[in-house]
Nucleic acid binder design. Structure first.
Lengths: 235, 235
DNA sequence: CCAAAAGTGTTCCGAATACACCCATGC
DNA sequence: GCATGGGTGTATTCGGAACACTTTTGG
């Protein structure tokens, strides 16, 4: 293992793509995420992912959870490392960004703000403003990962409250995937996984009441990678 | 984006899990990887993944390819980022390791050595020595990723020379997955993907000659992630 | 009663599997 | 010829997709 002799100027930042499902009204929900307006150069005035420098004594995942809480006031229902970005020219100074992606529950994201609400705003994932650095590409990749992972895991439940109907869950899938799913087949597929417990409660509304379900287990919504013991607790 | 005021002591290392298929003789091939004996503390004398400090002016992928060449003298036929490890206690000093995994072709790995052949040795992936830091866990994760990715991509071809028989390819799959595959069904599945071009050459040997194939395209063997333009060239 | 969502039943189709069988070569 | 791996054919099974149909509520 060779080692460069000089103590060089590489710094480590941690950023997070924070996703939620936002319902504007009676409309179909949409994916939304918070961005932070930069107040210094480079890219002063542009919007960027929430993040910050990695602190000497915190793990990468802890840094992601910390900056997430600072900008939104929320704890994530799902948090996973996305990728480490380290191109030489992605910033004027040399910065390695370890990026995480997180899911937060819908209701919590309404009105909840962190330490600096002035410079935080939520955007529709399909209608983003101009972004600093390579953050547009990073968000694209996070959305790709979400759409991909929803196909073989239960991550979508990270958007939902503890009790929800199958229609709620299907609506989350439909929003993520961008297409309609057959209610009948969707029902069979989810209960083939045996991960939902039916409750005795029903949501009464406009038509026939729908049964409420909750998570069957306290296991992870999805495989989050090679996590060390210190990183396995998200709450 | 808040910034810690002190220039702190976090350093960035890049390591690589380098995998190949090794044929000991007429036996079934096995997964093998090179390790480097550490000559300094911490963990002096223990075996570790090839790697080194990230240089100021090179991208993460370039650092991985560089250390790979330094220890094995080889260029990878496949290279993908694995994960960024950043637990506080994984090393006495604070080190963030961005780990890559690579595939190299079998024949090339025989006898090829890099700048310091004394301290490099190849090990059977199922029979590893005591490893420094969290490298045992990292290798486990790399193997998991390989086994997983072989199911939905063409990565296994990264182990093979430009021309190969379907039996060669199937043998690679069988070694990676650790189980036998039906030759008939395997044949149909690979040519359903339309990614192999049959040549007019045959490998003559002990029995009926087997047709040689080569890659149909110059496209990637698998999705390697959100690569920037500077990282897309591996050769 | 009617509209609409909740929930069930059934058919169809394609992919994965198992396995019988033929082909071409070395010995 | 015969052993062995190369290569083809075919029946079965399983899961997903499509969609007809029944149930239960609000109005």
């Amino acid at each position: 293992m060779t080692r460069s002799e000089h103590e060089d100027g590489i710094r480590v930042a941690v950023s997070t793509v924070i996703l939620t499902l936002r319902r504007d009204g009676g409309q179909a929900p949409r994916l939304a995420l918070p961005l932070v307006r930069r107040t210094r150069d480079p890219h002063a005035g542009a919007w960027a992912l929430p993040g910050g420098w990695l602190d000497d004594a915190e793990s990468l995942a802890a840094a992601a959870a910390r900056t997430l809480a600072e900008t939104t006031g929320l704890a994530p229902s799902y948090l996973e490392q996305l990728y480490a970005f380290g191109a030489v020219d992605r910033s004027p100074s040399r910065v390695i960004s370890v990026v995480y992606w997180a899911l937060v529950r819908e209701e919590e994201s309404v009105g909840a703000v962190g330490s600096d609400p002035e410079n935080v705003a939520w955007f529709d994932a399909e209608d983003l403003p101009g972004l600093a650095f390579d953050h547009a590409r990073i968000i694209e990749y996070a959305l790709w990962r979400l759409r991909n992972k929803v196909g073989y895991s239960r991550v979508a439940q990270g958007f939902l409250p503890p009790e929800f109907t199958l229609a709620d869950l299907r609506e989350a899938y439909e929003t993520i995937l961008g297409r309609r799913l057959d209610p009948a087949n969707f029902r069979r597929q989810v209960d083939a996984t045996r991960t939902l417990i039916p409750t005795n409660a029903f949501r009464t509304g406009s038509h026939r009441p729908a049964r409420l379900y909750r998570d069957a287990t306290d296991v992870e919504l999805a495989d989050r990678g090679p996590l060390s013991p210190e990183e396995t607790r998200t709450s």
